[in-house]
Design a protein around this nucleic acid. Structure first.
Lengths: 342, 342
DNA sequence: CGCCTTCTTTACACCGGTGTAAAGACACCA
DNA sequence: TGGTGTCTTTACACCGGTGTAAAGAAGGCG
């Protein structure tokens, strides 16, 4: 049988002071006489008192928890993002609750209305499947910061990565290497934010270089997994078109595509150059190592948590819609073996 | 300004019933007259009432949250485990709070006494750096289920993976392929559970086959990362000893080692066979694909969550130490390219 | 028709903290 | 010595639910 935990009341009684005085000591309220403080602290120590957060939170009307909603934790990018967010949140005394949306529109909408929203003070939200028609759903009555894509909706705090500029940069890098028949792998048909923007950056670079995008060199589906990358690559190869490079909308798809190329006896970068997006840890350890865009994960996490914390603390302009922050994190291209031109 | 949320009191007043009746309806208490129930439900709907979980939890003395403590989310194995645990917990109405220990002894001890323990009802705990001297720290006063290794301490529920048997099996597979100079990569010097057990399985297979383990073929450190694998591999190669196989204590180290072998112009499996442990998704997509042990993650997650839920519900023998469960999940060897013998 | 049971609904204390307003101490000044 | 202001400490209502015990309503039986 677990014994009942020590409460503030117990401490107060034992120290011969009022409940509130203990509360004041615990919360570092300045106007407490030193001797009183010492006495209380000694008893706290003696009894091993630990605060009951549920009670405090009920009283304060908050939970101390923020949610991070991502498609899937097993996608390396999101695991690394979660790691960065947890670290950033710890710094400001917040605890992170991770929710997976499965990367589907339904899952992403559900997270906005889930009863779990009442368990958290705010939401860091990284939707990938929402369409612009869903923008209305983002008009929520709790603090929220969008992550990763460009805003679907104005008036909501947002920390974006440089999807379009990054994709353009990496595409230009492929073009600079003399590649012209460049395949695009990823959910091109979805209207989804990041995919859309990265694809746009790709097309912008291509057309700026006067190179046509062959529709037969485009494949992929909504789920940005290793399998998708491999399958899309297979699909393209089976169409019998020529190609000399692949830009996958994220790293795991690029790695899946590389795997498929290898299975079919094609060499990277000899026959086909491959580039991705995200700079997950694996990208520097794959064989060959993968050229990619580093979207500044740590910066994104720190900034986003900071914005959310500001909202929670009532800073950041309450609900003055006009003052929504729109921040784009810096990016960097990591040039590696997979796009080398020997 | 956010408006105050609708409370049960509001619903009660509006429906003209007592607070408790609303509570009864919400909690599907059987003795409520149908008309009353309908009336209340209609008002709930009308007002968009959602329960305040903090309040309920304070009253009930629980939080509905369980913690999952893992070394690092960015290690693919733990991301995949977390995914499996979240899914399993959802099934039984529990929410998972992920905590990272950093894989250090200090981090793992801290998680046991952290104030966050008072925010969760129970702990799924996957320590990797704890020594047997720390077993006493596992004598905690909240429900806990150990995950992944063999128990450091009797009397605590535990879902283990077949570390030793798995390692032995994969080592036998290398030996069967005619390899004799087999390197061991991973935290050999730490007394840590999984590492220790896997290393033991390795040594058992070796000695059963009458093959000596050359100490110069052993390297690694506490953190089981890709870098560790690469660094350990480099270290071994620089010692100038011959080798024809590598068993890394987990997949990411194996992948790091493969990368290092490649950089130095050695071929896998031609010159050196490589095997890992965990069967992370990447193992089947690496180049070459990686032979490894699948420790049955889903089964582990489901079982562990089930045990913890039983404890929380007061089932599972309260604190009758004698009745602690000790379960070993089934494993399976996945034979792939990295250990092929042509 | 009155009494006993069983079914419904209610009032109220309680979970363990926090904010507020007011009371008690104390020093300083006229 | 009394009045005033600041510093400390306290009492008490409140956060939004839940359990308990008891009151009220309804049905069965002698």
């Amino acid at each position: 049988m677990t014994v009942r935990a020590v409460t503030m009341r117990d401490v107060a009684r034992r120290a011969g002071v009022s409940l509130k005085t203990v509360s004041n000591v615990v919360n570092a309220y300045p106007h407490v006489r030193p001797e009183m403080r010492d006495r209380v602290l000694r008893v706290i120590d003696e009894l091993g008192y630990q605060m009951n957060f549920t009670a405090r939170n009920l009283s304060l009307g908050r939970t101390g928890l923020i949610a991070l909603a991502v498609p899937e934790l097993r996608l390396a990018y999101f695991a690394e993002l979660a790691d960065a967010v947890i670290a950033a949140a710890d710094q400001v005394g917040l605890t992170v609750l991770i929710e997976q949306t499965g990367g589907t529109r339904a899952g992403e909408l559900e997270v906005l209305t889930s009863p779990r929203r009442r368990m958290t003070d705010g939401l860091l939200y990284s939707p990938t499947a929402l369409r612009s028609a869903d923008a209305g759903a983002l008009d929520v009555d709790f603090p929220m910061v969008l992550l990763g894509e460009r805003a679907l909706r104005r008036g909501v705090d947002h920390v974006a990565m440089a999807n379009e500029a990054g994709a353009r940069t990496v595409t230009e890098h492929l073009l600079d290497g003399g590649r012209r028949r460049i395949a695009l792998i990823g959910g091109h048909d979805s209207e989804s934010g990041a995919g859309n923007l990265r694809a746009r950056g790709f097309r912008a670079a291509m057309s700026a270089a006067g190179v046509e995008v062959d529709p037969r060199l485009v494949a992929g589906d909504e789920r940005w997994s290793r399998q998708t990358g491999a399958r899309a690559m297979a699909e393209i190869l089976e169409r019998g078109v020529t190609l000399d490079a692949v830009f996958a909308l994220n790293d795991v798809m690029a790695l899946g595509a590389m795997r498929e190329l290898f299975e079919r006896g094609l060499s990277v970068p000899g026959d086909v150059a491959v580039a991705g997006f995200d700079n997950i840890e694996e990208a520097s350890f794959s064989r060959p190592s993968l050229t990619t865009i580093d979207p500044g994960r740590t910066e994104i996490a720190r900034t986003a948590v900071g914005l959310l914390a500001d909202r929670l603390a009532g800073r950041g302009g309450e609900h003055e819609t006009a003052s929504a922050h729109e921040i784009v994190a810096g990016f960097r291209i990591e040039t590696r073996e997979s796009t080398a031109t020997d």
